[in-house]
Design a protein around this nucleic acid. Structure first.
Length: 717
DNA sequence: CAATCCTGATTTTTT
DNA sequence: ATCAGGATTG
């Protein structure tokens, strides 16, 4: 919809009621973002100061988008951020009350896993994967219950063991001056409880709150918000119970269902007009979701006309399903002028992407997998960041353990454990302990080191000192470069020739990001940079404008829309997933997930399933998903085996046997094909350390690779 | 302490 | 089929 076209009456109401609690039930495609933007503009018009408004979202992407739209409409900068970065902000200002310092580290899942493993090891001397997983959820549930003491677990982990580990885990976090993701929400709540004056300060600071995707809030987020608005009661929440798909992560759908009870006198506004989908698609989705017994009754409608029927395709096997989808996509692109960026393949599990990738590669259809491993979770990036964290605090044992043996310094697990325990006894930070140990200062529990180990540790401590010095006097980008240089990280990378070039590229990208970030921030600091990176996900990097087909899990599709959507693998035990099969609430959530997937489509929706599917090397016979039966047949058109699209087969034949060319005659701009990486574009030709090298951009991975000409295996297209 | 083989697990993952 | 982490070697 156009930015300045008229709001419908419900949208208008949602914009104009600015005081008191208000719940906006915003169905799929009902113009939610627009309403939120206009609402903020209206608040500003009515005299609310920009600094008093706080908007909360779940993803950085959503926050950035909303911030930009508000800026565009009103020229005002309003604080719109994720729940977790709000938590981080509050803690940076006030965490000293709880005995941490304000430059605390934020641990991601990787880091907390390592910490938890340590605790489990210390407690029972052994660890099992299953227990680890269970402990993780128990810890998270404890924090979500707002208890200081561990909750009862119903599983294999004994209460006493869990209790011990929980306290250990929490104590270690504090010792290392670190917080986990849950702490970013739980510790502010703790502050609000224990320091009423602090609470009052934050209540005054933000007089008007706005929460997006309220159906996905967990108890911590609910409580945090509840504290903040309990005085002003100016709370506007936006959400759709039918799109609640994160209960397995602790989201509580009751937060939105009980809103009127929690905030008496709340106004409820329903946005029922869908501006996105053709009514065949929307009505089909409505019928499906109506099967869920426990829900807020609502009925979305569309004025966009019926459009085409939903296409249902039954394939003999998973490979043929993928070929069908790929051929349809080519046809849409060439015959209907649909850009690839307006099409999407949705699947239930990540493992399903593989067969599609192969197929798209063969047909030279550029694609991108949205989600997956984030740039910031790559090993080399995490390594360098761990060095920087050490330079920052020196207490962070997890980062210490990550970096101490890079490259090998003869300090393995056994020695590390000794050092850790000794430092703990000594009651000093890990770096401080190492300094003492090396300077032969009296330590109560000295750790015996071999000459080689001592030398290694000396070198390590010296590097940290150098980095600390550099961090005082130079730019962030230079600091990151220094971290790479001083640690001789490139030498370390060269041990693995296979991955070396890519990893180096990634580190260069990290330096660029540091420089960029420094430019765009008013008060750049290492702490701030590290925080930004810990709170960033792979989704935030995805750029949806490029001319590429998107592949993603349905979970990752929430909030997006496409002209054509292909919902694949509609089979029992895959979707609904086998792990949800036996419990009614689980199936309901799967059904909501299906609803989310269907309502992403504007014009064309395809549902497909395969009769046999190869999973983990085993071929199984699959039954069609129950969801297919739950959609009335009047909206569906069954497709027979499709005539393969001629162009596609022609291209496929051509590409099936690309001639590996050992060649030095590519030039910038040449289109090439690589067996593994797919279609690419030559960006640069230069003399690398390993010989003549091409820098090629591959659309599949959305990344540049350096290929040594001799092994390039490229075919010109 | 490091290298190697082997076993076993593989839903979704906003932060 | 694949890959990460564990146990077992050197």
């Amino acid at each position: 919809m156009e930015e300045n076209s008229k709001l419908n009456p419900e949208q208008q109401m949602a914009v104009e009621i600015i005081d008191g609690p208000i719940l906006i039930i915003a169905g799929a495609g009902s113009g939610k973002t627009r309403v939120v933007t206009f609402r903020i503009a209206n608040l500003l018009n009515k005299g609310v100061h920009a600094s008093q408004i706080l908007g909360l979202t779940f993803t950085n992407k959503a926050a950035t988008e909303m911030k930009e739209r508000v800026l565009h409409l009103t020229q005002s900068a309003v604080l719109i951020c994720t729940f977790h970065s709000l938590g981080a902000k509050i803690l940076r200002e006030s965490i000293h009350h709880l005995g941490y310092t304000s430059n605390f580290t934020i641990y991601d899942d990787d880091d907390t896993d390592k910490l938890l493993k340590m605790c489990l090891n210390d407690a029972v001397g052994a660890e099992s994967k299953e227990k680890l997983k269970e402990l993780k959820t128990l810890i998270s549930s404890t924090k979500n219950s707002l208890q200081e003491s561990p909750i009862e677990g119903g599983g294999r982990v004994e209460g006493q063991l869990f209790s011990k580990i929980y306290f250990q885990y929490q104590a270690k976090l504090k010792e290392y001056n670190a917080v986990d993701y849950d702490d970013l929400l739980a510790l502010p709540v703790k502050l609000f409880r224990e320091y009423p004056s602090l609470l009052e300060y934050y209540q005054q600071r933000w007089s008007h709150l706005l929460i997006d995707e309220y159906q996905d809030t967990n108890h911590l987020q609910y409580t945090l918000v509840n504290y903040l608005v309990s005085k002003s009661r100016n709370l506007c929440v936006v959400g759709d119970p039918d799109q609640s798909i994160y209960s397995w992560r602790g989201a509580n759908i009751n937060n939105i269902l009980n809103f009127e009870n929690d905030y008496p006198g709340a106004k409820v506004i329903r946005l029922d007009q869908n501006y996105r989908s053709r009514s065949n698609i929307l009505d089909a989705a409505n019928h499906l979701i109506a099967r869920n017994p426990n829900r807020f009754e609502k009925h979305l409608w569309s004025a966009r006309g019926p459009g085409e029927k939903i296409k249902l395709f039954r394939a003999d096997n998973d490979k043929m399903e993928a070929s069908f989808v790929a051929d349809r996509i080519l046809a849409y692109q060439r015959q209907c002028d649909l850009p690839l960026s307006q099409m999407v393949v949705f699947y239930r599990t990540n493992a399903q992407s593989r067969v599609f990738e192969d197929c798209l590669l063969q047909r030279r259809i550029p694609y991108v997998i949205v989600g997956g491993i984030s740039f910031y979770h790559r090993r080399e990036i995490k390594d360098i960041l761990a060095w920087l964290r050490m330079a920052l605090s020196g207490n962070d044992y997890v980062s210490f353990a990550r970096t101490i043996n890079l490259p090998k310094r003869g300090l393995g697990d056994a020695t590390l454990d000794k050092i850790r325990l000794a430092a703990s006894h000594e009651q000093c930070g890990i770096l401080e302990y190492c300094e003492k140990l090396l300077s032969k200062e009296i330590v109560q529990v000295p750790v015996k080191l071999t000459a080689k180990q001592r030398e290694g540790l000396e070198e390590y401590v010296q590097i940290i000192h150098q980095l600390q010095k550099v961090s005082q006097e130079t730019t962030l980008a230079a600091l990151v470069t220094a971290a790479i240089d001083y640690t001789r990280y490139w030498t370390y990378l060269e041990e693995d020739k296979e991955t070396m070039v890519d990893r180096k590229e990634n580190l260069n990208a990290l330096v660029s990001k540091a420089a960029e970030w420094e430019q765009s921030t008013s008060e750049p600091s290492l702490t701030g940079f590290l925080e930004e990176l810990s709170l960033k996900s792979s989704l935030d990097e995805a750029d949806t404008n490029a001319e590429r087909l998107s592949l993603m899990t349905i979970h990752n599709g929430k909030g997006l829309e496409f002209d054509a959507a292909f919902l694949v693998g509609m089979e029992e035990d895959l979707f609904p997933h086998i792990n949800s099969r036996d419990d009614e609430e689980g199936v309901e959530e799967e059904r909501r997930l299906c609803y989310v997937g269907m309502t992403r489509a504007k014009e064309y929706l395809y549902l497909s399933h395969a009769v046999t599917r190869t999973i983990w090397g085993v071929t199984r016979t699959q039954r069609p998903s129950r969801f297919l039966r739950e959609i009335p047949t009047e909206y569906i058109e069954k497709l027979g085996a499709p005539a393969p699209y001629n162009y596609a087969t022609a291209v496929q034949r051509k590409v099936e046997k690309p001639q590996p060319i050992v060649s030095e005659d590519f030039s910038n701009g040449d289109l090439v094909f690589h067996q593994e990486f797919g279609v690419g574009c030559v960006r640069q030709k230069y003399d690398g350390s390993a010989g003549l090298t091409y820098k090629v951009f591959f659309s599949k991975s959305n990344s540049e690779k350096n290929l040594v000409a001799e092994f390039a295996n490229l075919a010109r297209l």
